[in-house]
């Protein structure tokens, strides 16, 4: 039986939540599930091309540990999920408008077209929905 698609609504700029989203998205994608990630609100900031690498993630003790222990980088996990599975990431069109960003402001080779929340929610009716 084919697995349900997984829809992840990622709104938090917190490192732990972005890491969890990346882990779930990558593992589900390589496990033959379709995965759709909608990145909105403050969560988009770490995906900015010009965001300072040393200051990319916001978080507390656990964020520091993830970096110190060299846990897999969240953005690299998303890229692996795209390369090895069926993973789609869409930036929220509203936050792109507010930031006056276009595709060129986002990290290369990661995102598909900006998407509206209504379309994402409509599509997500067919699958499992997780918010972070």
């Amino acid at each position: 039986m084919e697995s349900q698609p997984l829809y992840i609504l990622l709104c938090s700029e917190q490192h732990e939540k972005i890491q969890m989203a990346a882990m779930m998205a990558a593992v589900a994608a390589v496990s033959e599930r379709k995965v759709y990630v909608f990145v909105s609100m403050g969560a988009i900031i770490p995906f900015g091309k010009t965001t300072d690498l040393a200051d990319r993630y916001k978080g507390g003790v656990f964020s520091d540990l993830l970096i110190e222990k060299k846990a897999p980088d969240a953005i690299e996990l998303f890229k692996q999920g795209k390369r090895l599975g069926d993973l789609t990431l869409n930036p929220c069109s509203m936050v792109m408008d507010i930031l006056a960003w276009d595709d060129g402001d986002l990290i290369d080779d990661l995102f598909d077209e900006p998407l509206g929340l209504t379309k994402f929610l409509s599509d997500a009716e067919t699958g499992q929905f997780i918010t972070l």
Binding site: M23, A26, V27, K70, A71, P72, Q80
Partner: peptide, 17 residues
Amino acid sequence: GAFCPEPLMKLIATFQL
């Protein structure tokens, strides 16, 4: 020394080869 899910991701990348 690699943390979850890196061992699995490495395995899957190698599977393609």
